[in-house]
Design a protein around this nucleic acid. Sequence first.
DNA 1: GCAAATTTTGACCGATTGGACAAACGTTAG
DNA 2: CTAACGTTTGTCCAATCGGTCAAAATTTGC
Lengths: 213, 213
Amino acid sequence: MTDTMEGSAPRRTRIQQEKRELILEAALEVFSANGFRGSTIDQIAEAAGMSKPNLLYYFRRKEDIHETLMQRLLDTWLAPLRELDDIGDPMTELRSYIRRKLEMARDFPRESRLFANEILQGAPRIMPMLEGELKTLVDEKAAVIKGWMRAGKIARTDPWHLIFAIWATTQHYADFDVQVRAVLGPDRGGDGRFEDAARFLEQLFLDGLKPKG
Amino acid sequence: MTDTMEGSAPRRTRIQQEKRELILEAALEVFSANGFRGSTIDQIAEAAGMSKPNLLYYFRRKEDIHETLMQRLLDTWLAPLRELDDIGDPMTELRSYIRRKLEMARDFPRESRLFANEILQGAPRIMPMLEGELKTLVDEKAAVIKGWMRAGKIARTDPWHLIFAIWATTQHYADFDVQVRAVLGPDRGGDGRFEDAARFLEQLFLDGLKPKG
DNA sequence: GCAAATTTTGACCGATTGGACAAACGTTAG
DNA sequence: CTAACGTTTGTCCAATCGGTCAAAATTTGC
């Protein structure tokens, strides 16, 4: 191996690609459960079924794994918001955005927790991305929502805080999963909890709590 | 010192009381910023202005500090929900519950993050409390809310998920503070963000997003 | 088949960690 | 004053951590 594996032209072997994927998968499992500092290279190596020095052959530092994981995460994580589009009925757009976010919390809880962990610790490694890419995207979508409000399609309110509320309520089911399960109990906390949540969130965001009539 | 400091009758000195408070305050700062495993006794000792062995004289293990902190936290953390009462107008009760929760996120962000950290890691140390005390309280308040729904005072929906949504949206401003600030930017992310959030959440929960009229 | 390149491993290292311990220091009641 | 008790500190230890390194094992290009 003459390459440093980090440059702009990775040029990787078949084995390198496979093993790196294996490591990233294992690291996602470990990091999301224990946080960055709470996770050890040994844990990740064991979860990936290889020795520690072998893992360090593919990622020279623990931080490199985390960084790679984080970069990939953010792209897929923001995809639903990117899809929020000006064309189409606003209420329908919002409803499907909420549903997509909730589906991500259900299908990718580890990614959600990894992200939550990073933010909780003050986002030391992704702060530039929050102030740059993320802020730009949110501002852009907030403008779209503002347009809907001006057109009288949805009630006037703060688009930024609306987005925060959608993030908070949906990701809650991934990040606080153990609490949700504990409170709902064995029967209601089963697989059906996501459908219940979907129904509730749709009603909350679209109708509020005011009694009808 | 003949006492173990752990029994049912602590019997503590004036200095012990003061120093233990000092340590708990310092530990809250450190634990909430770095998580349990990410925090070191040395960090806490330095934040408390004492040496590590001296700190270990008051709390024999790192885990004891965390446990004590967690026990105190839960009481104050659930106080707003305990106050949710059957008497009084349902809409007013819910509004002030939301406001109280948001005020706690504003005034006690470290406590919120400490709690979030613990849940994110799977709540290894407080699981019994979640399944016991917390579940009981939530079930009780869910019954109250259900009564309001039956009486036609508020729209029919799932009380448990309603409580989750209130938790998620309010605590979001403490747990994801850096993200909220980054997205809102220097001007809108200032001190006023909590008033904006309060206005938004009130509208969201009480009126929904449906355009009026 | 073979040489070069890549992959894997065991042994090891310095730094950090949680915690133990005895000695020194301070406080207080008689 | 002083003996008993409470407090503080310096020193030390074993375990764990992230990471190195050279040698062995394996794969790959020709």
